[in-house]
Design a protein around this nucleic acid. Sequence first.
DNA 1: AATGGTTCAGTTTTT
DNA 2: CTGAACCATT
Length: 731
Amino acid sequence: MQDQLDQLNPQQRAAVEATEGPVLVVAGAGSGKTKVITTRIMYLIHKGISPYQILAMTFTNKAAQEMRERIERAVGKDARDLTITTFHSFCAMFLRREINYLDRDSNFVIYDTSDQTSCLKRVIRNMDLEEKNYPAQRLRSRISYLKNAGDLGGELNNPVEQQIYKNYQDELLAQNALDFDDLLHLTCQILERWSEVQQRYRHRFEYIMVDEYQDTNQIQSKLINLLLNEQHNLCVVGDEDQSIYGWRGADITNILHFDTFYRGTQVFKLEQNYRSTQSILDYANAVINLNKLRKPKKLWTESGEGLPIIINDEYTATNEAETIIQQIRSLNRNDKLPFNHFAILFRSNALSRLLEETARRYRVPYQLIGGLKFYDRKEIKDLLSYMRIVVNPRDWTSFVRALGVPSRGIGAKSQDKLYVYFEEGSNIPDLMDRAIKDKALSGKGFKGLQVFNELYRDMVTWSQNETPSNWLKKLVDRLEYKEYLEKLDTTTVDSRLDNLQELMASMVEQEAKGVETLSQFMDFSALVSDQDDLNPDEPRVNMMTVHAAKGLEFDTVFVMGLEDGVFPNQRALDDNPNSIEEERRLFYVAVTRAKQRLFLSYARSRQTFGKIVRNHKSRFLLPPKVSAEVPAAAVKSTGPSPWGDKQTQQQRLTAQMERLGIDTGKIKRSLAGGDESGPSLEPGDRVEHASFGQGTVSVVMGQGAQRKVSVHFPGKGIRTLLVAKAGLKKI
DNA sequence: AATGGTTCAGTTTTT
DNA sequence: CTGAACCATT
């Protein structure tokens, strides 16, 4: 144990050793937060605390698993008795045991975002309302926000919406389903109402730790409070500067006011950064300093100044993507930097498309994290819907979905008829029996229902005798699902079959980790996060939203789309100042992911909604007066005209052609080679410079007299040179 | 009831 | 430009 403690700096060590009473650890980006938490747990175990009495809440399952592995390496199998989970997983486990207190069935299913939306749609339709006036998606996020902010639907816009909300909850109840937010609410409800339950859990968890505390919401802090006993052995770790989930109800004041809420709180501040270079930290500090809603904090490092931050100014989004990919190729080739050491971060998922295209064109391997989630894909949801009705025979939503794929001649009309039966009995097998007996459907639909009914009985039998993965295999065969996918769309079969394979693999993997029932697997599938399917060891460039990058670090980071209206996005600009602060924190998170190299880029025009939109560079790119805090050498701008020069006519022409989809690469090259401004250059060309020596061209920007190249000179770094002036010789 | 073709509206961010 | 929703066929 002494070994582990010796590895910590004084603040970290103090935070670890302060085991009793409320503790707030303000952990700046890259300050060794995870190390503190894991060491603290080891320390507790070392002190003789039973692992069984320790609870740690993390933000993702992946973080939980990594923590557990770290601890296991140090303390061995004792680590298995630790409870390290996410809030949602914790509540799911809790409710499987305790939900009967609320007179509910422990076989509930967890509805994800799309299940919630379709449930709301049905509610709205049943109320005979115009779906246009009550967009289900909007209502869903509004309801979710209110639930998270601790307001149980009391503040919806009008009585109709109130009624929708009420019917939605009734519908969930009838289907024995919980949405994400209910997991937390019902858990709190039980703990509040039944003191014997609360006593049990309070007694169980003597020491509680919460990671990423800046992103907890009201319900979550309430839950923690309910679990806490008189000792108040609660240690929360977080950084208000990285609070980026306000939009889903996270309350930054949880962390800002923690020490006033829990009397006698010991506060530890971790400001030494072990991740980034001083240049990057200077920049990050200057960015976040502009925020008001924070306590002063300044990151520092011993690791030295490092490389300058590069700002790429681009005419079009296409140029931007091109530059990024070229810079990656160059660093990969010349510095032997593996592809997985790169991350490209953006504000919204829509920005990834161009990048993907460009990466594919240059055969740069990449993995996209997030976007369409794995468990949201059609083929996966199809099969999971079969699984769900077996576990929970009251899940109407999944029943309807399963009934429709592959199609069995049961459309909207027949569904309505069946729904009447459902309302009478609220149970799928029963409903089918009665509907068949009554001959409620005719012809094809009747046949289809009979077949489905038989299948259903078999699925239930399999679920008793087979492992989840075997169960799925039987189902796929029985449905001839692969054949169905082929008929559905020949262009997408391959990827869909891959996904099927992946689903199977992930089931086998979960089984190896102790998952035995379909129900357990479904909880897992409902609560996985994007980061969970990040594979850090594959040599592929990582592309993801800044939100998805939370907690991660990469050698080289590109933050793209830095334009007003994109990052910060338009809604934040229209909204109150707090939103801009949250956007700025988001930018801060992005910047602090980088260990060695940081590239920031923006494009003056980009296609949004299929239209060309001209944008101004982001207000987050430090204006000159602020960047005075940052050493001049720390930031370099590249690109045709960094701070607002006019385009030349030629540039405008090629930009326009690009917008029209005409490949201008050839024209540019011939233009560039044809004038007096030096040799014709392409990425990959070797050149010689009078003082820098030999190097490799990574990026070519601009034309004619404005033409610049980024050249990598081994040992001297990347230099951006004006071709007309630099006197480069091609070799 | 299912299919295919069309229009139409809409983008933050996610457990 | 893309997905969902709608409509007109068969």
